[in-house]
Write a protein that binds this DNA or RNA. Structure first.
Length: 216
DNA sequence: CGAATTTGACCAGCGC
DNA sequence: GCGCTGGTCAAATTCG
């Protein structure tokens, strides 16, 4: 458990980072996340996904701009099939003015329930942002704050407010030695419910899609 | 007044 | 065993 929480800068930037995503250029590039698996099966899936990075939910600019390009149905369908954990990153990118560097951490929490060891997927990413709290579409309740060794800024602990969801996240601003404009966010677990804001935003599109599929 | 946040206390794991 | 550190709890406080 403790081994996980000293996220060295090197680890954060080079694992699974897309070559298309430059490191922390402010306010320019779309964001995406790389979910991290912790058992072997998941790990294989992760590596397979990494091999075909096109499966990650990049944000199609023409979808967000609402311009004359119309709707890219293929992208929309792909988006709708994306797991919630990736959608969170997708929405985070669209909802906040910030630049994110995705990363992964291998050693997630191991929770022992009975005799079975359950690993919670965990992934971290860094965001260049004025605000500590990014709007990722989910609702969070703060349950703790802690001063961290070797850091001028405290670490905040949040839990998803959804009653059936046990996802947590930690938010910490990097100390001045590095770059205090960078926020390190660590997600732990996967949401077992749809993202409120995303579903709200997609509702008209889904309606339209349903109309098209039922009438043609 | 209920929900959310703050903050000190408490606990567990780790290294010495 | 003891101290340090990170993570969580829960009472008090603040906010909408």
């Amino acid at each position: 458990m403790h081994a996980m929480m000293e996220p060295s800068e090197g680890d954060l930037v080079h694992h699974h980072q897309s070559p298309a995503l430059p490191d922390l250029h402010p306010f320019t590039q779309p964001n995406f996340l790389v979910p991290v698996a912790h058992d072997q099966q998941q790990q294989q899936q992760e590596e397979a996904a990494a091999a075909s990075s096109a499966s990650l939910p990049r944000r199609p600019d023409h979808m967000m701009s609402g311009g004359a390009g119309g709707i890219d149905w293929a992208s929309l369908l792909q988006l709708l099939q994306t797991p919630a954990v990736e959608l969170a990153g997708f929405l985070e990118g669209s909802a906040s003015v910030a630049t994110t560097t995705a990363s992964s951490e291998r050693d997630g929490d191991q929770i022992i329930k009975g005799k079975r060891i359950i690993s919670k997927p965990r992934f971290a990413f860094r965001t260049k942002s004025e605000s500590d709290l990014l709007d990722d579409g989910y609702r969070w309740r703060k349950y703790g704050q802690k001063a961290v060794k070797n850091s001028a800024f405290p670490r905040s602990y949040y839990r998803c407010t959804h009653h059936t969801c046990d996802v947590k996240k930690q938010v910490q601003r990097l100390s001045k030695d590095n770059d205090s404009s960078i926020v390190l966010t660590t997600y732990q677990g996967i949401h077992n419910h749809p993202c409120d804001k995303l579903m709200q935003a997609l509702a008209p599109l889904i309606k339209h899609l349903h109309f098209l599929t039922t009438t043609f």
